[in-house]
Amino acid sequence: MTLLTHDRYCDEIAHQAGQLGELLTAGADLGATVPTCPEWTLEDLLLHVGRALRWTEHTVRTRAQAEIPMDQVSGIEGPAARGDAAALAEWFAQSTDAVTGALRAAGPDAYAWSWMGKHDAAFWARRMCHELIVHGADGALAAGRAPGTVAPEVAADALDEWLEIVEFVQRALPDGPAKDLRAPGRTIQLHATDTAPALGADWLVGLTPDGVTWRRGHEEATAAVRGPLASVLYLFYRRLPLDAPDLEVVGDRELLEFWLAKASFG
């Protein structure tokens, strides 16, 4: 596994945020329900992402030594009035510019507190890149569009990161949903049908008695999902269903449903 460069993550943050923000300038309905997060409207989604970007900018810029309360972050509230697409678009663009500027100025090795124990700006560049991919899919679906395309190397890294997060939360949140992801002898194979083997087209996930393990590679598994890499990624993010038309499920479907129900931040 090879991480992307710090600059590439920053570029992807700008790109993915631009795609999400474009929904506002294209006239998408701010009141539309986000089907993958039905408690949110599209406006709620944009506010959530913009606040995450501003909180991350503050964390990186100040070289935070501990978690920063949201109410200490300038501009975190968003536009004064709800329902103003132009104001929301401007605020969201400013949020994007702020976080990419802070990350580039800091460089990957600058100290910045994180909830996962990797306390540097590199963690936040990677995390915000992939946060924008998943919420970009949410925004597209709310606007009646298909999720956007993701460069193969970015999608592969996003899958790696998600599996790392599941491993982490299983250890760090012993009472969270991921604690149940233990099924001795049962494995899940992910296979990207459109990705060059040199990049890494396969992941093997094990649900061992001691917790989740994973590695890049291909072998027989209890259950398998095959399809375009972006679709496999969106499935594991729970942004596409198992019966999406470009995905093929082989073996124990119930194991995949179990994984999707329990693989969570908490």
Rank of each mutant, 00 (worst) to 15 (best):
residue 2 T to I: 10
residue 6 H to R: 09
residue 7 D to M: 05
residue 9 Y to D: 02
residue 12 E to I: 03
residue 21 G to A: 00
residue 28 A to V: 03
residue 30 L to M: 04
residue 31 G to Y: 02
residue 35 P to K: 07
residue 42 L to T: 02
residue 42 L to R: 01
residue 45 L to T: 01
residue 45 L to G: 02
residue 52 A to H: 10
residue 52 A to W: 08
residue 53 L to S: 06
residue 57 E to V: 12
residue 61 R to H: 13
residue 78 G to A: 09
residue 80 A to V: 14
residue 81 A to C: 11
residue 84 D to R: 09
residue 88 L to K: 03
residue 92 F to M: 03
residue 96 T to K: 00
residue 97 D to V: 04
residue 97 D to W: 00
residue 100 T to R: 06
residue 103 L to R: 08
residue 110 A to F: 09
residue 115 W to I: 11
residue 115 W to T: 06
residue 116 M to I: 15
residue 117 G to S: 12
residue 121 A to G: 10
residue 140 A to C: 09
residue 142 A to R: 04
residue 147 P to E: 15
residue 147 P to M: 15
residue 148 G to Q: 13
residue 156 A to S: 14
residue 158 A to R: 04
residue 168 F to S: 02
residue 173 L to V: 15
residue 182 R to S: 06
residue 182 R to L: 11
residue 182 R to H: 10
residue 184 P to G: 04
residue 186 R to I: 00
residue 188 I to A: 03
residue 189 Q to W: 09
residue 196 A to W: 00
residue 200 G to Y: 06
residue 202 D to P: 08
residue 205 V to N: 03
residue 207 L to A: 09
residue 208 T to G: 06
residue 209 P to F: 12
residue 210 D to V: 09
residue 211 G to Q: 05
residue 214 W to L: 02
residue 216 R to A: 01
residue 221 A to Y: 12
residue 222 T to Y: 10
residue 224 A to D: 10
residue 229 L to G: 14
residue 229 L to W: 10
residue 232 V to M: 04
residue 233 L to M: 10
residue 236 F to L: 13
residue 243 D to K: 11
residue 244 A to G: 11
residue 246 D to I: 03
residue 248 E to Y: 02
residue 248 E to M: 05
residue 262 K to E: 15
